[in-house]
């Protein structure tokens, strides 16, 4: 069973923003350049030993947010506190040389596409150790083999190329590469979405075991709410660049407060369980993220509960339960 984190957070991101200028501009442009608000003032923490889930539709900014936290792209505003430093002040281009690079690692969605096809499994796992830890020769081999062993990858497979490995084995290479540098924070972007259920369980168990064994914290991005519910202590629900709800995963999924969370939960069919009662269904598409109205709820127009106030006043923070937050004028407050 998940345990709540008590100590200081490993990662503490505050008011992180990413805005991209779009169109307009140019020599004769008048007025300000339109800005696409991909991530709009998001604050989040990941506690020691905690698994935090991040869910939301494509285009909501999940990927942009995780790329910023992994310091692959620069933030427009905000701070990313990690191990006493504000990493947001380090340009992404120079972050590869920063000591925190080895401490924040990422497991990518597409294990196939994220491993260099001309690298053997050994080379793939060795690359970050060579670059970040300066290892070579026997110590390098020992570390690669240890990472492979920890991830249940037989050492006999280390000489193979990605195309010679199964989906589950490739997933293990991707995880071994990420944990080889002994990170404190692992950002996992849909690590099991391409896998069959029988393999998925094995990989999820591996991740749970590695977390406690190596003392890591996870930020887990996924579309699969059943998986998020299974392995995450806390969940953040994103909509159009904003967090609309957060709290303990089981509580949020059992009794969502934000109508968007409710719609997400209602969209998921439960295997072997015939659904009872009506579902909250969404129609239409999200609004444009370009220069959004700061005095309106982003979900307004698509929200089945929306009223006039939602279009003219920014939604207030409400507390549906312990450790929970939601941003809504008309939250669903029937509790279990």
């Amino acid at each position: 069973m998940p345990q709540p984190a008590v100590s200081a957070p490993v990662l503490d991101a505050r008011d992180v923003c990413k805005r991209y200028p779009v169109g307009g501009g140019g020599l004769f442009a008048r007025g300000p350049v339109p800005l696409l608000h991909a991530v709009d003032r998001i604050s989040l923490t990941v506690g020691a030993g905690e698994t935090v889930g991040l869910v939301g539709e494509s285009g909501c900014g999940k990927t942009t947010l995780t790329r910023m936290l992994a310091r692959l792209i620069d933030t427009t505003e905000g701070s990313i506190l990690f191990g006493g430093d504000d990493l947001a002040t380090v340009p992404a281009a120079r972050f590869a040389g920063h000591p925190a690079r080895a401490a924040i690692q990422m497991v990518f969605q597409d294990a196939e596409g994220s491993i260099n096809p001309r690298f053997t499994a050994f080379d793939a796992i060795a690359a970050p150790l060579r670059r970040l830890n300066g290892l070579s020769g026997a110590p390098l081999r020992a570390r690669v083999e240890r990472a492979a062993e920890q991830c249940g990858l037989p050492l006999t497979l280390l000489g193979r190329y990605p195309h010679q490995l199964s989906g589950g084995q490739k997933a293990r290479v991707g995880i071994a590469r990420a944990v080889a540098t002994e990170p404190k924070l692992l950002i996992l972007d849909e690590p099991t979405s391409a896998l069959d259920v029988s393999v998925q369980v094995v990989i999820l168990e591996l991740l749970a075991e590695l977390k406690s064994r190596l003392g890591m914290s996870y930020l887990f991005v996924s579309h699969d709410l059943n998986v998020v519910r299974l392995i995450c202590d806390r969940v953040l629900v994103m909509y159009l660049g904003r967090i609309v709800e957060e709290g303990p995963a089981e509580a949020v999924f059992r009794a969502p407060a934000h109508p968007y969370t409710r719609a997400l939960v209602d969209s998921v069919a439960v295997p072997g369980q015939i659904r009872e009662g009506p579902r909250l269904r969404l129609s239409g598409d999200p609004k444009s993220p370009i220069d959004p109205d700061q005095n309106a709820c982003r979900f307004h127009g698509r929200c089945p509960r929306g009223q006039d106030v939602c279009g003219s006043v920014a939604p207030p923070e409400v507390t549906p339960g312990t450790g929970r937050r939601a941003f809504c004028h008309l939250p669903l407050m029937e509790h279990a």
């Binding site: 998986v227 299974l230 295997p271």
Partner: peptide, 14 residues
């Protein structure tokens, strides 16, 4: 082997 609400990871078998 399929994750479902109400099940813990240890209750899901491979």
């Amino acid at each position: 082997a399929t994750p479902r609400p109400g099940l813990a990871l240890s209750e899901i078998s491979t």
